[in-house]
Design a protein around this nucleic acid. Structure first.
Length: 200
DNA sequence: GGCCAGGTGTAAA
DNA sequence: TTTACACATGGC
């Protein structure tokens, strides 16, 4: 039996023009500290609720300004995104550790590793990869609920996150090795999300 | 009113 | 190593 590879799926999604009216990157404000906040706030939470929280955080979405927030204030601001009692201290600890280990956000972007991210409380596989892809522009493919649901619709399932990621990245790396892989992975992820909203 | 959403950490088997 | 559960709001 012939099994689809991820490049087949990529082309299938491309033909549907799912990102026709979207900016280059589907995640808002890529390459900024705000991406880290959004990544943690959206854990098991709809993006609509995250948007409300991000609006409340207006003016505090840089590393330096975020670090001036009191935990109680932050909890109140991110309340719409849920799980605020655990997200608030985790976000502050993350910001503190970035300051401590990298001093500036741009040094974090250039030098952070997946291992460093996974040591942070509140960052697991998916959040680490979202940060690497959308905040640091690394060539990494994010695996989320949408991704798994799409693959399942093609009868493709794995038992571990890393196997999903390997499946997704492998044939794109070999077929599109001369392209901007970061942007390709980001758009692939974006198309997967839009496909879910439209068809699944 | 119940179920789900762009997961993660922890405790118990 | 796997499984179960807590975390919490807002939309449908």
């Amino acid at each position: 039996m012939l099994q689809k590879n991820s490049f087949d799926i990529y082309k299938y999604l491309e033909d549907k023009n799912l990102l026709l009216n979207s900016p280059e990157y589907w995640w808002p404000n890529v390459g900024t500290f705000e991406v880290l906040i959004g990544t943690i706030l959206t854990q098991n939470t709809s993006w609509k609720n995250v948007e409300k929280a991000l609006e409340n955080l207006d003016g505090f979405l840089t590393l330096e300004s975020f670090l001036t927030l009191e935990e109680a204030t932050l909890k109140d601001m991110i309340k719409p995104s849920g799980f605020y009692n655990q997200k608030a201290p985790r976000l502050l600890q993350l910001a503190f550790n970035i300051k401590k280990d990298f001093n500036e956000f741009k040094n974090f972007q250039a030098n952070v590793t997946r291992e460093w991210l996974l040591m942070q409380k509140g960052i697991g596989d998916e959040s680490a990869d979202s940060i690497l892809c959308y905040a640091c522009f690394k060539d990494v493919m994010v695996v989320d609920t949408y991704t798994k649901r799409l693959l399942k619709s093609f009868n493709i399932e794995f038992d571990k996150y890393s196997k999903y990621q390997e499946y997704l990245e492998k044939s794109l790396r070999s077929n599109l090795k001369d392209g901007d892989l970061n942007l390709i992975f980001a758009r692939f992820h974006g198309m997967i999300v839009e496909y879910n909203k439209e068809y699944l």
